[in-house]
Amino acid sequence: MAKQGVVPDDLTRPFWEAANDERLVIQNCAVCNRLQHPPARRCHQCGSNAHLEWKQMCGRATVYNYGVVHDCPIRLLQEDQPFNVAVVMLEEDPGIQMYSHLPGTPVDAVPVGARVEVIFEATANGQKVPEWRVVHSAGSNR
């Protein structure tokens, strides 16, 4: 799907740079040992900005929930309607969510609870973005 391009800003640049290297990193407070996404200027738990770092994730997650978008406000995506938008929960911390179009999964056939793995897709300006693909067990025909 033709996602809009991304112009990294100060807050999110490490996330996007890592994505271009096909690595998934999430902001972490080293003191609280707590991940947060979307990233913020301060740790939502301790309020400090002194110990924020970027931590690499293993790239595995679980499908938590999904909706099917039929009327999208983003012009570039309207040609692809309807499409899945799932929420996945990272293996390192199920409280951390990421969105996904779940490429390869038929519309409205999203397996809630299924395991997914990260892949990286290029957006309209070449910036890569983390996406997720359902991991099929051996013998699965999907």
Binding site: K3, V7, H37, V69, C72
Partner: peptide
């Protein structure tokens, strides 16, 4: 921004997937 070809990185973490309100 919804009509544009690129969006800022912070907004993109949600908006890239084209979810309506």
């Amino acid at each position: 921004a919804n009509a544009g070809n690129a969006i800022p990185g912070s907004a993109a973490l949600r908006a890239l997937w084209g979810t309506p309100a």
